[in-house]
Design a protein around this nucleic acid. Sequence first.
DNA 1: TAGTTGATGGCACCCAGTGACATGACCCTG
DNA 2: CAGGGTCATGTCACTGGGTGCCATCAACTA
Lengths: 198, 198
Amino acid sequence: MSLGAINYAGPMPRWQPDARGRLQEAALTLYREHGYDNTTVAEIATRAGLTKRTFFRYFADKREVLFAGATDLQELFVGEVLAAPASASPIEAVAAALDAAARWFEPMRSYSAQRQLIIAANPELHERELIKLAALAQAVAQALRQRGVADPAAILSAEAGITVFRVAFDRWVDDANRQPFQQLIGELLGELRAVTAA
Amino acid sequence: MSLGAINYAGPMPRWQPDARGRLQEAALTLYREHGYDNTTVAEIATRAGLTKRTFFRYFADKREVLFAGATDLQELFVGEVLAAPASASPIEAVAAALDAAARWFEPMRSYSAQRQLIIAANPELHERELIKLAALAQAVAQALRQRGVADPAAILSAEAGITVFRVAFDRWVDDANRQPFQQLIGELLGELRAVTAA
DNA sequence: TAGTTGATGGCACCCAGTGACATGACCCTG
DNA sequence: CAGGGTCATGTCACTGGGTGCCATCAACTA
Protein backbone atom coordinates (compact mmCIF):
# COMPACT_ATOMS: atom_id res chain seq x y z
CA MET A 1 0.00 0.00 0.00
CA SER A 2 1.46 3.33 -1.06
CA LEU A 3 1.43 6.32 1.21
CA GLY A 4 -0.34 8.55 -1.26
CA ALA A 5 -3.48 8.23 -3.31
CA ILE A 6 -3.06 6.95 -6.83
CA ASN A 7 -3.34 9.51 -9.61
CA TYR A 8 -3.64 12.41 -7.25
CA ALA A 9 -1.52 15.33 -8.37
CA GLY A 10 -2.61 17.85 -5.75
CA PRO A 11 -0.62 18.73 -2.66
CA MET A 12 -0.04 15.83 -0.33
CA PRO A 13 -1.13 17.02 3.11
CA ARG A 14 1.51 16.53 5.70
CA TRP A 15 -0.99 14.97 8.12
CA GLN A 16 -4.16 13.01 7.70
CA PRO A 17 -7.17 15.24 8.28
CA ASP A 18 -9.46 15.30 11.33
CA ALA A 19 -7.08 13.98 13.95
CA ARG A 20 -9.64 14.81 16.63
CA GLY A 21 -12.36 12.82 14.94
CA ARG A 22 -10.06 9.87 14.36
CA LEU A 23 -9.19 9.83 18.05
CA GLN A 24 -12.84 9.91 19.05
CA GLU A 25 -13.73 7.08 16.74
CA ALA A 26 -10.75 4.99 17.80
CA ALA A 27 -11.58 5.52 21.47
CA LEU A 28 -15.25 4.63 21.04
CA THR A 29 -14.37 1.45 19.20
CA LEU A 30 -11.72 0.32 21.66
CA TYR A 31 -13.80 1.19 24.72
CA ARG A 32 -16.65 -0.83 23.23
CA GLU A 33 -14.59 -3.83 22.12
CA HIS A 34 -12.05 -4.16 24.92
CA GLY A 35 -13.62 -2.11 27.69
CA TYR A 36 -12.61 1.29 29.01
CA ASP A 37 -10.24 -0.08 31.66
CA ASN A 38 -8.45 -2.41 29.27
CA THR A 39 -7.78 0.37 26.77
CA THR A 40 -4.70 2.57 27.11
CA VAL A 41 -4.41 6.02 25.66
CA ALA A 42 -1.38 4.84 23.71
CA GLU A 43 -3.55 2.22 22.00
CA ILE A 44 -6.18 4.78 21.06
CA ALA A 45 -3.54 7.09 19.64
CA THR A 46 -1.82 4.34 17.68
CA ARG A 47 -5.14 3.23 16.17
CA ALA A 48 -5.69 6.82 15.06
CA GLY A 49 -2.17 6.96 13.61
CA LEU A 50 -0.99 9.38 16.30
CA THR A 51 0.85 9.34 19.61
CA LYS A 52 -0.23 9.49 23.22
CA ARG A 53 1.12 13.05 23.49
CA THR A 54 -1.09 14.22 20.66
CA PHE A 55 -4.13 12.60 22.23
CA PHE A 56 -3.65 14.80 25.28
CA ARG A 57 -3.39 17.88 23.06
CA TYR A 58 -6.95 17.27 21.89
CA PHE A 59 -8.53 15.88 25.06
CA ALA A 60 -7.81 16.80 28.64
CA ASP A 61 -7.98 13.19 29.76
CA LYS A 62 -8.94 9.67 28.80
CA ARG A 63 -12.62 10.27 29.68
CA GLU A 64 -13.14 13.53 27.89
CA VAL A 65 -12.86 11.95 24.44
CA LEU A 66 -16.38 10.55 24.90
CA PHE A 67 -17.94 13.90 25.81
CA ALA A 68 -17.14 16.13 22.87
CA GLY A 69 -20.82 16.79 22.11
CA ALA A 70 -21.52 18.25 25.53
CA THR A 71 -20.81 21.82 24.49
CA ASP A 72 -23.14 21.56 21.48
CA LEU A 73 -25.90 20.26 23.72
CA GLN A 74 -25.32 23.07 26.17
CA GLU A 75 -25.54 25.68 23.42
CA LEU A 76 -28.75 24.09 22.22
CA PHE A 77 -30.30 24.21 25.69
CA VAL A 78 -29.24 27.77 26.38
CA GLY A 79 -30.37 28.97 22.97
CA GLU A 80 -33.80 27.40 23.36
CA VAL A 81 -34.31 28.76 26.85
CA LEU A 82 -33.40 32.26 25.69
CA ALA A 83 -35.55 31.92 22.59
CA ALA A 84 -38.68 30.90 24.46
CA PRO A 85 -41.50 33.46 24.38
CA ALA A 86 -41.31 36.12 27.07
CA SER A 87 -44.66 34.92 28.36
CA ALA A 88 -43.30 31.43 29.10
CA SER A 89 -42.86 30.45 32.72
CA PRO A 90 -39.43 29.18 33.79
CA ILE A 91 -40.50 25.56 33.59
CA GLU A 92 -42.11 26.19 30.20
CA ALA A 93 -38.88 27.65 28.85
CA VAL A 94 -37.00 24.63 30.15
CA ALA A 95 -39.60 22.31 28.66
CA ALA A 96 -39.08 23.95 25.28
CA ALA A 97 -35.37 23.29 25.54
CA LEU A 98 -36.00 19.67 26.53
CA ASP A 99 -38.20 19.28 23.50
CA ALA A 100 -35.51 20.65 21.22
CA ALA A 101 -32.93 18.36 22.80
CA ALA A 102 -35.19 15.38 22.26
CA ARG A 103 -35.52 16.26 18.57
CA TRP A 104 -31.76 16.68 18.38
CA PHE A 105 -31.07 13.22 19.80
CA GLU A 106 -33.84 11.32 18.00
CA PRO A 107 -31.77 10.48 14.87
CA MET A 108 -28.84 9.34 17.03
CA ARG A 109 -30.53 6.69 19.10
CA SER A 110 -28.28 3.80 18.09
CA TYR A 111 -25.09 5.77 18.65
CA SER A 112 -26.42 7.15 21.93
CA ALA A 113 -27.29 3.68 23.17
CA GLN A 114 -23.82 2.32 22.37
CA ARG A 115 -22.17 5.24 24.08
CA GLN A 116 -24.43 4.94 27.10
CA LEU A 117 -23.56 1.26 27.46
CA ILE A 118 -19.89 2.16 27.66
CA ILE A 119 -20.52 4.92 30.18
CA ALA A 120 -22.80 2.81 32.35
CA ALA A 121 -20.12 0.12 32.53
CA ASN A 122 -17.57 2.42 34.10
CA PRO A 123 -17.87 4.58 37.22
CA GLU A 124 -15.21 7.04 36.04
CA LEU A 125 -17.18 7.72 32.90
CA HIS A 126 -20.41 7.96 34.87
CA GLU A 127 -18.80 10.60 37.07
CA ARG A 128 -17.78 12.59 34.04
CA GLU A 129 -21.28 12.41 32.62
CA LEU A 130 -22.76 13.64 35.87
CA ILE A 131 -20.50 16.67 36.01
CA LYS A 132 -21.33 17.50 32.39
CA LEU A 133 -25.02 17.40 33.27
CA ALA A 134 -24.38 19.53 36.34
CA ALA A 135 -22.64 22.10 34.15
CA LEU A 136 -25.59 21.93 31.77
CA ALA A 137 -27.98 22.66 34.63
CA GLN A 138 -25.84 25.61 35.69
CA ALA A 139 -25.89 26.99 32.16
CA VAL A 140 -29.65 26.61 31.91
CA ALA A 141 -30.08 28.32 35.28
CA GLN A 142 -27.92 31.19 34.05
CA ALA A 143 -30.04 31.49 30.92
CA LEU A 144 -33.16 31.62 33.07
CA ARG A 145 -31.63 34.39 35.15
CA GLN A 146 -31.04 36.29 31.91
CA ARG A 147 -34.77 35.94 31.36
CA GLY A 148 -35.30 37.65 34.69
CA VAL A 149 -36.01 34.56 36.74
CA ALA A 150 -34.82 34.92 40.31
CA ASP A 151 -33.09 32.31 42.43
CA PRO A 152 -33.91 29.81 43.73
CA ALA A 153 -36.56 29.41 41.02
CA ALA A 154 -33.91 29.56 38.31
CA ILE A 155 -31.67 26.85 39.71
CA LEU A 156 -34.57 24.62 40.75
CA SER A 157 -36.26 24.85 37.35
CA ALA A 158 -32.98 24.08 35.63
CA GLU A 159 -32.13 21.16 37.89
CA ALA A 160 -35.63 19.73 37.61
CA GLY A 161 -35.41 19.97 33.83
CA ILE A 162 -32.05 18.24 33.67
CA THR A 163 -33.32 15.52 35.99
CA VAL A 164 -36.21 14.89 33.62
CA PHE A 165 -33.77 14.87 30.72
CA ARG A 166 -31.52 12.33 32.42
CA VAL A 167 -34.31 9.98 33.42
CA ALA A 168 -35.91 10.25 29.99
CA PHE A 169 -32.59 9.65 28.28
CA ASP A 170 -31.92 6.49 30.26
CA ARG A 171 -35.35 5.14 29.36
CA TRP A 172 -35.03 6.20 25.75
CA VAL A 173 -31.78 4.31 25.14
CA ASP A 174 -33.15 1.28 26.97
CA ASP A 175 -34.47 -1.15 24.39
CA ALA A 176 -37.40 -2.23 26.54
CA ASN A 177 -39.15 1.14 26.28
CA ARG A 178 -39.54 1.98 22.65
CA GLN A 179 -41.00 5.45 22.78
CA PRO A 180 -40.04 8.65 21.02
CA PHE A 181 -37.74 10.76 23.17
CA GLN A 182 -40.11 13.73 22.95
CA GLN A 183 -42.99 11.69 24.28
CA LEU A 184 -40.90 10.39 27.18
CA ILE A 185 -39.90 13.93 28.07
CA GLY A 186 -43.51 15.05 28.06
CA GLU A 187 -44.69 12.17 30.20
CA LEU A 188 -41.92 12.57 32.75
CA LEU A 189 -42.50 16.31 33.02
CA GLY A 190 -46.13 15.54 33.80
CA GLU A 191 -45.17 12.89 36.30
CA LEU A 192 -42.76 15.25 38.03
CA ARG A 193 -45.52 17.83 38.33
CA ALA A 194 -47.87 15.22 39.78
CA VAL A 195 -45.27 13.92 42.21
CA THR A 196 -44.20 17.28 43.60
CA ALA A 197 -47.80 18.41 43.99
CA ALA A 198 -48.73 15.39 46.13
CA MET B 1 9.46 11.15 73.36
CA SER B 2 9.17 7.47 74.20
CA LEU B 3 7.23 5.09 72.05
CA GLY B 4 4.96 3.95 74.86
CA ALA B 5 2.84 5.70 77.43
CA ILE B 6 4.39 6.22 80.82
CA ASN B 7 3.19 3.98 83.64
CA TYR B 8 1.12 1.83 81.36
CA ALA B 9 1.55 -1.82 82.08
CA GLY B 10 -1.02 -3.22 79.66
CA PRO B 11 -0.17 -4.71 76.29
CA MET B 12 1.48 -2.27 73.92
CA PRO B 13 -0.54 -2.39 70.72
CA ARG B 14 1.58 -3.12 67.73
CA TRP B 15 0.03 -0.23 65.79
CA GLN B 16 -1.47 3.10 66.69
CA PRO B 17 -5.26 2.83 66.70
CA ASP B 18 -7.69 4.22 64.14
CA ALA B 19 -5.46 4.25 61.09
CA ARG B 20 -8.47 5.06 58.94
CA GLY B 21 -9.41 8.09 61.00
CA ARG B 22 -5.82 9.34 61.05
CA LEU B 23 -5.69 9.12 57.26
CA GLN B 24 -8.95 11.05 56.93
CA GLU B 25 -7.80 13.78 59.25
CA ALA B 26 -4.39 14.05 57.59
CA ALA B 27 -5.98 14.25 54.15
CA LEU B 28 -8.50 16.91 55.17
CA THR B 29 -5.78 19.05 56.71
CA LEU B 30 -3.39 18.74 53.78
CA TYR B 31 -6.09 19.27 51.16
CA ARG B 32 -7.14 22.41 53.04
CA GLU B 33 -3.66 23.81 53.63
CA HIS B 34 -1.85 22.90 50.43
CA GLY B 35 -4.71 22.16 48.06
CA TYR B 36 -5.89 18.83 46.73
CA ASP B 37 -3.64 18.87 43.66
CA ASN B 38 -0.52 19.77 45.61
CA THR B 39 -1.00 16.94 48.06
CA THR B 40 0.35 13.46 47.30
CA VAL B 41 -0.99 10.29 48.81
CA ALA B 42 2.48 9.57 50.14
CA GLU B 43 2.35 12.85 52.10
CA ILE B 44 -1.03 11.99 53.60
CA ALA B 45 0.19 8.57 54.60
CA THR B 46 3.40 9.89 56.14
CA ARG B 47 1.47 12.47 58.14
CA ALA B 48 -0.69 9.65 59.48
CA GLY B 49 2.39 7.58 60.28
CA LEU B 50 1.65 5.09 57.53
CA THR B 51 2.66 4.36 53.96
CA LYS B 52 1.06 4.97 50.58
CA ARG B 53 0.34 1.27 50.25
CA THR B 54 -1.69 1.28 53.44
CA PHE B 55 -3.65 4.36 52.37
CA PHE B 56 -4.93 2.41 49.38
CA ARG B 57 -5.97 -0.45 51.62
CA TYR B 58 -8.42 1.88 53.40
CA PHE B 59 -9.53 4.06 50.50
CA ALA B 60 -10.02 3.10 46.89
CA ASP B 61 -8.45 6.32 45.66
CA LYS B 62 -7.23 9.76 46.64
CA ARG B 63 -10.76 11.23 46.45
CA GLU B 64 -12.61 8.63 48.45
CA VAL B 65 -10.95 9.65 51.71
CA LEU B 66 -13.23 12.71 51.81
CA PHE B 67 -16.45 10.75 51.34
CA ALA B 68 -16.45 8.26 54.20
CA GLY B 69 -19.73 9.62 55.62
CA ALA B 70 -21.69 8.94 52.45
CA THR B 71 -22.79 5.49 53.52
CA ASP B 72 -24.08 6.79 56.86
CA LEU B 73 -26.06 9.47 55.09
CA GLN B 74 -27.50 6.92 52.71
CA GLU B 75 -28.60 4.68 55.58
CA LEU B 76 -30.21 7.67 57.25
CA PHE B 77 -32.16 8.57 54.11
CA VAL B 78 -33.30 5.02 53.42
CA GLY B 79 -34.26 4.44 57.03
CA GLU B 80 -36.36 7.59 57.17
CA VAL B 81 -38.10 6.89 53.88
CA LEU B 82 -39.00 3.38 55.03
CA ALA B 83 -40.07 4.64 58.44
CA ALA B 84 -42.46 7.27 57.09
CA PRO B 85 -46.15 6.59 57.80
CA ALA B 86 -47.85 4.39 55.24
CA SER B 87 -50.23 7.24 54.50
CA ALA B 88 -47.38 9.53 53.37
CA SER B 89 -47.10 10.30 49.67
CA PRO B 90 -43.76 9.61 47.98
CA ILE B 91 -42.70 13.23 48.19
CA GLU B 92 -43.78 13.38 51.82
CA ALA B 93 -41.65 10.38 52.66
CA VAL B 94 -38.71 11.98 50.90
CA ALA B 95 -39.37 15.25 52.70
CA ALA B 96 -39.24 13.42 56.03
CA ALA B 97 -35.84 12.02 55.09
CA LEU B 98 -34.62 15.46 54.05
CA ASP B 99 -35.72 16.82 57.39
CA ALA B 100 -33.83 14.11 59.24
CA ALA B 101 -30.75 14.75 57.12
CA ALA B 102 -30.94 18.46 57.90
CA ARG B 103 -31.06 17.71 61.61
CA TRP B 104 -28.12 15.33 61.19
CA PHE B 105 -25.97 17.97 59.50
CA GLU B 106 -26.94 20.95 61.65
CA PRO B 107 -24.24 20.42 64.34
CA MET B 108 -21.58 19.93 61.67
CA ARG B 109 -21.95 23.19 59.79
CA SER B 110 -18.37 24.39 60.25
CA TYR B 111 -16.87 21.05 59.25
CA SER B 112 -19.25 20.76 56.32
CA ALA B 113 -18.36 24.22 55.08
CA GLN B 114 -14.63 23.50 55.22
CA ARG B 115 -15.09 20.24 53.39
CA GLN B 116 -17.31 21.84 50.78
CA LEU B 117 -14.72 24.52 50.11
CA ILE B 118 -12.18 21.83 49.32
CA ILE B 119 -14.59 19.96 47.08
CA ALA B 120 -15.73 23.06 45.24
CA ALA B 121 -12.12 23.95 44.48
CA ASN B 122 -11.48 20.74 42.61
CA PRO B 123 -13.41 19.22 39.68
CA GLU B 124 -12.28 15.68 40.49
CA LEU B 125 -13.75 15.97 43.96
CA HIS B 126 -16.90 17.57 42.58
CA GLU B 127 -17.35 14.60 40.26
CA ARG B 128 -17.02 12.22 43.17
CA GLU B 129 -19.60 14.14 45.16
CA LEU B 130 -22.04 14.04 42.29
CA ILE B 131 -21.80 10.29 41.89
CA LYS B 132 -22.31 9.84 45.62
CA LEU B 133 -25.47 11.93 45.41
CA ALA B 134 -26.59 9.94 42.38
CA ALA B 135 -26.13 6.73 44.37
CA LEU B 136 -28.08 8.32 47.20
CA ALA B 137 -30.94 9.11 44.84
CA GLN B 138 -30.93 5.53 43.57
CA ALA B 139 -31.07 4.21 47.13
CA VAL B 140 -33.97 6.52 48.00
CA ALA B 141 -35.81 5.45 44.84
CA GLN B 142 -35.33 1.82 45.82
CA ALA B 143 -36.69 2.54 49.29
CA LEU B 144 -39.74 4.19 47.72
CA ARG B 145 -40.29 1.13 45.55
CA GLN B 146 -40.26 -0.95 48.72
CA ARG B 147 -43.08 1.29 49.90
CA GLY B 148 -44.99 0.29 46.80
CA VAL B 149 -44.29 3.40 44.75
CA ALA B 150 -44.10 2.63 41.04
CA ASP B 151 -41.66 4.05 38.54
CA PRO B 152 -41.23 6.65 37.27
CA ALA B 153 -42.76 8.26 40.38
CA ALA B 154 -40.16 6.60 42.59
CA ILE B 155 -37.10 7.76 40.70
CA LEU B 156 -38.52 11.24 40.07
CA SER B 157 -39.44 11.78 43.71
CA ALA B 158 -36.02 10.60 44.80
CA GLU B 159 -34.16 12.74 42.27
CA ALA B 160 -36.26 15.79 43.10
CA GLY B 161 -35.55 15.27 46.78
CA ILE B 162 -31.81 14.96 46.27
CA THR B 163 -31.84 18.05 44.08
CA VAL B 164 -33.48 20.00 46.88
CA PHE B 165 -30.95 18.57 49.30
CA ARG B 166 -28.04 19.61 47.12
CA VAL B 167 -29.27 23.14 46.50
CA ALA B 168 -30.16 23.59 50.16
CA PHE B 169 -26.78 22.24 51.26
CA ASP B 170 -24.89 24.66 49.03
CA ARG B 171 -26.88 27.57 50.46
CA TRP B 172 -26.55 26.32 54.00
CA VAL B 173 -22.76 26.18 53.95
CA ASP B 174 -22.58 29.56 52.22
CA ASP B 175 -21.95 32.19 54.88
CA ALA B 176 -24.18 34.74 53.23
CA ASN B 177 -27.37 32.81 53.95
CA ARG B 178 -27.52 32.12 57.65
CA GLN B 179 -30.59 29.97 57.92
CA PRO B 180 -31.20 26.65 59.63
CA PHE B 181 -30.77 23.76 57.23
CA GLN B 182 -34.27 22.48 58.00
CA GLN B 183 -35.81 25.81 57.11
CA LEU B 184 -33.91 25.96 53.82
CA ILE B 185 -35.10 22.48 52.92
CA GLY B 186 -38.68 23.45 53.61
CA GLU B 187 -38.50 26.62 51.58
CA LEU B 188 -36.86 24.94 48.61
CA LEU B 189 -39.35 22.10 48.63
CA GLY B 190 -42.11 24.70 48.43
CA GLU B 191 -40.31 26.58 45.69
CA LEU B 192 -39.87 23.38 43.68
CA ARG B 193 -43.57 22.69 44.01
CA ALA B 194 -44.39 26.20 42.84
CA VAL B 195 -41.97 26.05 39.94
CA THR B 196 -43.11 22.70 38.56
CA ALA B 197 -46.76 23.67 38.84
CA ALA B 198 -46.28 26.82 36.75
C1' DT C 1 5.17 -24.20 71.73
C1' DA C 2 3.95 -24.03 67.22
C1' DG C 3 1.01 -22.53 63.82
C1' DT C 4 -2.23 -18.90 62.22
C1' DT C 5 -4.08 -14.44 61.63
C1' DG C 6 -4.03 -9.76 60.17
C1' DA C 7 -2.38 -5.02 59.72
C1' DT C 8 1.37 -3.12 57.83
C1' DG C 9 5.78 -2.21 54.94
C1' DG C 10 8.60 -2.74 50.76
C1' DC C 11 9.15 -3.09 46.05
C1' DA C 12 8.47 -3.40 41.28
C1' DC C 13 5.44 -2.22 37.95
C1' DC C 14 1.76 -0.03 34.71
C1' DC C 15 -0.32 3.85 33.01
C1' DA C 16 -2.39 8.71 33.02
C1' DG C 17 -0.88 13.10 32.39
C1' DT C 18 2.70 17.08 31.70
C1' DG C 19 6.72 20.02 30.40
C1' DA C 20 10.43 20.91 27.28
C1' DC C 21 12.35 20.52 23.12
C1' DA C 22 12.87 18.78 18.21
C1' DT C 23 11.02 18.14 13.50
C1' DG C 24 9.56 19.37 9.09
C1' DA C 25 6.07 20.63 5.62
C1' DC C 26 3.53 24.68 4.71
C1' DC C 27 3.03 29.75 4.13
C1' DC C 28 4.63 34.25 3.79
C1' DT C 29 7.54 38.01 2.48
C1' DG C 30 11.36 40.21 0.33
C1' DC D 1 13.59 31.67 -4.89
C1' DA D 2 15.75 32.15 -0.33
C1' DG D 3 14.91 32.56 4.30
C1' DG D 4 12.26 32.78 8.24
C1' DG D 5 7.99 31.94 10.89
C1' DT D 6 4.00 28.92 11.97
C1' DC D 7 1.94 24.92 13.72
C1' DA D 8 0.62 20.09 14.19
C1' DT D 9 3.03 16.43 15.51
C1' DG D 10 6.78 13.48 17.60
C1' DT D 11 10.24 12.27 21.30
C1' DC D 12 11.72 11.91 25.83
C1' DA D 13 11.97 12.25 30.61
C1' DC D 14 9.48 12.68 34.69
C1' DT D 15 5.74 12.80 38.47
C1' DG D 16 2.23 10.56 40.84
C1' DG D 17 -1.97 7.50 41.27
C1' DG D 18 -2.97 2.86 41.78
C1' DT D 19 -1.97 -2.47 42.09
C1' DG D 20 0.07 -7.20 42.77
C1' DC D 21 3.06 -9.83 45.39
C1' DC D 22 5.67 -11.07 49.07
C1' DA D 23 7.84 -10.12 53.69
C1' DT D 24 7.28 -8.93 58.57
C1' DC D 25 5.95 -9.62 63.15
C1' DA D 26 2.99 -8.99 67.32
C1' DA D 27 -1.17 -11.07 68.98
C1' DC D 28 -4.06 -14.75 69.19
C1' DT D 29 -5.11 -19.79 69.45
C1' DA D 30 -4.96 -24.76 69.62
